[in-house]
């Protein structure tokens, strides 16, 4: 994961070892990886079970949905926009999907229900993109509005009843998986592959970065901001639908609160992973490491056995982890960063 090539601006990198090394040290990934390894070592000393295969299998399964959506949101942030509606979108898609394919509800075949869910996700994503690019409403406003509106819509659709009994085949695939690999992991690997190809090997990726670094230059170079933005938001919508399909059947039932605070988790992973919030740079490997780090915190706290009073500090420790990841990076490694607020929207 971590040896993905940086997207742009690194083609002229000198090959001298010393320079390479100092670059490596200054990269966000190194810090994150160190933090992950260090935490693993500390927790491993306290309780060796933490390093067992079963625990890490579960952690990776939990990472999958976040990683899938983070791939999309990362591209959104790279183009200088933001998407904070993914949690509510996930809930809406879960409700719609549940309504369609549950044996207690309409009981439509999965072969229709799943593509329909993917289609709806993409459609809402494109709609968001349309408002942002054509309607020129800042993305944070559009997605903030959708965050509240879609959550309310989900509660209406659910009508106070939970949905369970999804088709057996789907839940089995989500829990046990193909040849022991859960569906969400397969999907995540696919999405990560696809996204990295998109970033590194086709012009579209470079155009996204160009648009994020300077909208004006991108326009002068003949790039269509409208089309690019439609693409990133549509892609994020599609990925959110995919994450819903592979992750939600793992849960015991579908209820209206699914995906609450998911958008914050995803955004946190993206910014902790080193994607500049003002757009233009950021790497997939950093985001993926941040996903692992953020997902790790809950099991780490369980395995540290911090006691009953300690458990109530969970959220504080999570916040400290985020601060630590961000502050060490800026303070000790003196990465060059755009100072805040120059162009956030």
């Amino acid at each position: 994961m971590s040896n993905l090539l940086p997207p742009i601006g690194h083609a002229l990198r000198p090959a001298r070892f010393g320079v390479r090394f100092s670059k490596l040290v200054r990269q966000r990934e190194t810090g994150l990886l160190l933090l992950i390894v260090l935490t693993c070592v500390v927790v491993g000393i306290k309780d060796i079970h933490f390093l067992s295969c079963e625990v890490w299998r579960e952690i990776l399964v939990r990472c999958a949905a976040t990683a899938i959506v983070a791939c999309g949101v990362m591209l959104v942030v790279v183009t200088g926009e933001i998407d904070i509606s993914v949690g509510s979108l996930m809930a809406l898609l879960a409700a719609v999907m549940g309504r369609m394919i549950s044996e207690h509800e309409w009981d439509i075949s999965c072969w229709i229900g799943i593509p329909a869910t993917l289609g709806l996700g993409t459609l809402i994503g494109v709609f968001t993109g349309c408002l942002v690019s054509v309607g020129r409403v800042p993305s944070i406003i559009v997605t903030l509005g959708l965050l509240t509106a879609l959550r309310g819509l989900t509660t209406l659709i659910m009508g106070g009843q939970n949905i369970d009994r999804l088709p057996e085949g789907l839940t089995q695939l989500a829990k046990q998986g193909l040849c022991g690999v859960p569906l969400s992991i397969l999907a995540a690997v696919g999405v990560i592959g696809l996204t990295s190809v998109l970033i590194h090997h086709i012009p579209l990726g470079r155009r996204l970065y160009a648009l994020g670094s300077s909208a004006e230059s991108a326009r002068m170079a003949g790039l269509s901001a409208v089309r690019l933005k439609l693409f990133v938001f549509g892609y994020t919508g599609f990925l959110t639908a995919l994450a819903t399909i592979v992750d939600v059947p793992r849960l015991p039932k579908i209820e209206a609160g699914i995906g609450s605070e998911f958008e914050l988790l995803v955004i946190t992973c993206v910014v902790v992973g080193g994607v500049a919030i003002s757009g233009g740079h950021g790497r997939l490997s950093g985001v993926l490491l941040a996903v692992v780090l953020m997902t790790m915190i809950r099991p780490v706290l369980t395995f540290m056995d911090i006691g009953e009073a300690g458990e109530k500090w969970t959220r504080a420790i999570q916040g400290m982890f985020i601060l630590l990841a961000v502050v060490t990076d800026s303070f000790f490694l003196r990465r060059q960063r755009s100072s805040g607020g120059e162009h956030t929207a």
Binding site: H49, V55, A65, D247, L251, I258, T302, D305
Partner: peptide, 25 residues
């Protein structure tokens, strides 16, 4: 013996995750 109390919030994924963790722990 009450080993621990977990607070996953009203979040189904966290509740599932915390339960899995305590089972391994």
């Amino acid at each position: 013996k009450l080993a621990t109390i977990k607070y996953p919030g009203e979040n189904a994924s966290n509740a599932l995750a915390d339960s899995q963790d305590v089972i391994s722990k």
